[in-house]
Amino acid sequence: MPKLTINGIPVEVERGTSVLEAAQFLGIPVPTLCHEDGLKPYGACRLCVVEVGTPPRTKLQSACTLAADDGLVIHTHSARVERARRLLLELYVATCPQSKTIQDLASRYGVREVRFSPKSEDCIQCGKCVRICAEQMMAGAIGFAYRGARRKVMSPFRQQSETCRHCGACMYICPVCELRCHGPQAESTLCSGCINFAPACLAYHDDAMCFLDPCAACELPGPFRKDVAPRPVAASLSPADPSGTRK
């Protein structure tokens, strides 16, 4: 079993454990946006970078993709790591200013000012949706297209994928999904989209990152759809009949 040192604490973990998991095992919080238990390490968000090695020969590496190995010396919160994370978070906030997850992380890291012009992208390309679809749902209905600045998540050729089962896993796992809650019309309504995994209706939000078509949530009557009259709730789904008689 590999023995390594994290922030001066010696730890022994099973072979195949990543440095991120080893740090979490020690209770050291390492921020990440693209890691998820049960999905293959991806190393895209770069927030989990840790300083590896002993000075003067150290380098930053993503903890999620680095396998715990004998003799590794890791620092998860050194000055260099913190500076890199702060700059990354400043850039994240500028890219996706609406995301609550990102705002929370940024404020935890003391990012008080954003020096970049804000964009309002709804995706940070963490790849969680693509991976859960392929690795856990065995569908592979969505993937990355294009390269560099144009890279984005989409279904093949922007068509509804035949392998999509409308399971909603992509919606569930998205770390910046608060974005979709800009939906409700009346200020008084609570959309609870995140809790219900209910995506916003494509009819209202053309470019929402919704890959479900037709969308399981939007077909239900509710405050989202003003163009569809609420359907009468099916008898079998209705709460127990107070009269106690079956029709």
């Binding site: 895209a44 390309q125 560099g148």
Partner: peptide, 15 residues
């Protein structure tokens, strides 16, 4: 480079 970056990691793509 921004055209040829694959876009996988945030630092390179967005940076």
């Amino acid at each position: 480079l921004q055209d040829e970056s694959c876009g996988k990691c945030f630092s390179c793509r967005e940076g």
